[in-house]
């Protein structure tokens, strides 16, 4: 049962990931990515990490993908026909090169997976005794021995965010229009 569920989740992940690359419509790509996240979250769940599963959905599914969708929708996508013809411009040599690189990467990955010894009952954690999630352990690890790394990661993220904003901010030509406060006098005809 657990094995079957794992294969379903894994298939979902892989197929959705393929869909992200293949689908012509950006919004569809984003949706496919969401499906892939749900699959990953399912695998987390099967492995007994409820907390990670929920966080995966909450953060990636609920917040980050919404922003992705936002950006994709607001962007001018252009004419699909033109986009398609541009895609057709890929030469045969380029195609062959790309396929070769991707194929060798896949072969490497497969070889690595085959050679790695995976303990048979991978999902023995499912419903372990004494509560499901090692949430307390995880929290203690995160705020105990790894607190420095944890805080470092957050600082890194913050720095990235600030850096992106600085880089992306254009020179303001006009002063920003301020909304008039409610209490001020308002002009207008009756």
């Amino acid at each position: 049962m657990v094995d079957l569920l794992f294969y379903v989740a894994a298939a979902l992940c892989v197929l959705c990931a393929l869909g992200v690359v293949v689908s012509a419509n950006p919004v569809q790509s984003v949706l496919m990515l969401l499906g892939s996240f749900v699959g990953i979250s399912l695998i987390y769940l099967l492995a007994g990490f409820q907390f990670l599963a929920a966080i995966q959905i909450l953060v990636y599914g609920g917040a980050i993908m919404v922003l992705f969708l936002f950006v994709v929708m607001l962007l001018n996508q252009g004419d699909p026909a033109v986009l398609a013809s541009e895609q057709g411009l890929l030469s045969k040599a380029q195609l062959a090169g790309g396929l070769a690189v991707a194929g060798s990467a896949l072969a490497l990955l497969l070889a690595a997976v085959v050679r790695t010894e995976i303990p048979r009952p991978i999902f023995g954690y499912l419903w372990p005794e004494g509560g499901l999630d090692p949430l307390v352990g995880m929290a203690q690890a995160m705020f105990g021995p790894y607190v420095l790394a944890f805080e470092g990661a957050s600082v890194l993220l913050l720095t990235t965010a600030v850096g992106v904003m600085t880089l992306a901010k254009r020179q303001r030509t006009k002063p920003s229009v301020k909304a008039a406060p409610l209490s001020s006098t308002t002009e207008g005809s009756p």
């Binding site: 919004v27 949706l31 969401l34 409820q50 907390f51 929920a54 966080i55 959905i57 909450l58 599914g61 609920g62 917040a63 919404v66 969708l69 936002f70 929708m73 509560g131 499901l132 999630d133 949430l135």
Partner: peptide, 24 residues
């Protein structure tokens, strides 16, 4: 669930997709 609260918050966060996709 041990993470009942997170579960509720995670899935209620997903309901935004209905709105945004429906609109688009």
């Amino acid at each position: 669930l041990d993470i009942g609260l997170l579960f509720v918050l995670a899935f209620s966060g997903l309901s935004v997709y209905g709105v945004i996709l429906g609109g688009w």
